[in-house]
């Protein structure tokens, strides 16, 4: 099942961490102050991926649809938490709206890829569903947190302009539209870059993985195209939803702007 990938031992993994330790040492001696977060993030990464490996092995072995869906739900909650924790001073009431804005495009696109495009049987086969859900939800999460953070910081910075437009009779949407446009552009830049630079600058992660485990490169390329398009679609949809849930929370039902309170 593992195809042709060369096994990696614990010794190999420790060798790979030497470079992180070297960078941390450089940061320590030059006083750049990065070493703590670098080491901490590396430890988290190692621990989480190792646990994921075991968890996926267990889920693949029992192959129960309920477990698979439960895993995706858990993913969504973690993604929502991460997304909102990166937004500085968010207004109240974003939690469940954020969750919905992640889940609707994320789940729709994931199942569209697995069932319609790839044609996985059964639809809940975790070997396809979970990695694809992870990529789709993870990328939406990153874009949406940038969108929300940028939206609120721009709205605060331009509150005088927004107040003047509202005073002239602008509807809430009209008053914040140029901030919304900037925010969605900022959130979509990494996705647009990865689409236009794919294959020229870098070989995308999933394609790399498939090639390493022995899949024919042109089949791997086709998978990657599907994934790239679907990730971009989910990211764009998620960003649009983030704008709508995001700006509405800053207005009361009587069109009073409440963000600067």
């Amino acid at each position: 099942m593992s195809g042709g990938a060369i096994p990696i031992s614990w010794v190999d993994m420790s060798l790979a961490s030497i470079f992180i330790l070297v960078s941390a040492a450089i940061s320590l001696f030059t006083g750049l102050g990065l070493h703590k977060s670098l080491i901490w993030a590396a430890l988290r990464g190692i621990l989480q991926l190792t646990m994921l490996g075991f968890a996926l092995r267990w889920i693949f072995s029992i192959s129960s649809p309920l477990t698979v869906l439960g895993f995706i739900t858990l993913m969504l909650f973690f993604a929502n938490h991460t997304m909102l924790s990166r937004v500085k001073h968010p207004p109240k009431g974003l939690y469940f709206r954020g969750l919905a804005a992640l889940a609707v495009p994320g789940v729709t696109v994931t199942f569209a890829v697995t069932t319609v495009v790839i044609g996985v049987e059964p639809a809940t086969d975790p070997r396809y569903l979970l990695p694809i859900a992870g990529m789709v939800i993870g990328n939406s999460m990153s874009a949406m947190s940038v969108v929300l953070d940028r939206l609120y910081s721009d709205m605060r910075a331009n509150s005088g302009r927004i107040a003047t437009l509202l005073a002239l009779g602008a509807k809430p949407r009209e008053a914040v539209w140029s901030e919304a446009q900037q925010a969605i552009r900022a959130g979509m830049i990494p996705t647009l870059n990865s689409m236009s630079a794919a294959g020229l600058v870098f070989i995308p992660g999933m394609m790399t993985g498939q090639i390493l485990s022995g899949t024919d490169p042109s089949l791997a390329a086709r998978y990657q195209v599907v994934i790239l398009l679907m990730i971009s679609a989910a990211t764009a949809l998620g960003s649009v939803l983030a704008i709508f849930i995001g700006y509405r929370r800053t207005f009361s039902s009587s069109e009073v702007f409440t963000l600067d309170r």
């Binding site: 005088g160 302009r161 003047t164 437009l165 509202l166 005073a167 002239l168 009779g169 509807k171 069109e255």
Partner: peptide
């Protein structure tokens, strides 16, 4: 009437002024 319709009729010019 909706707030934006009221604000068209009763319009505040806030201080300090900003260009639109």
């Amino acid at each position: 009437i909706p707030a934006h319709e009221w604000r068209r009729r009763v319009t505040l010019l806030p201080f300090p002024p900003v260009p639109l």
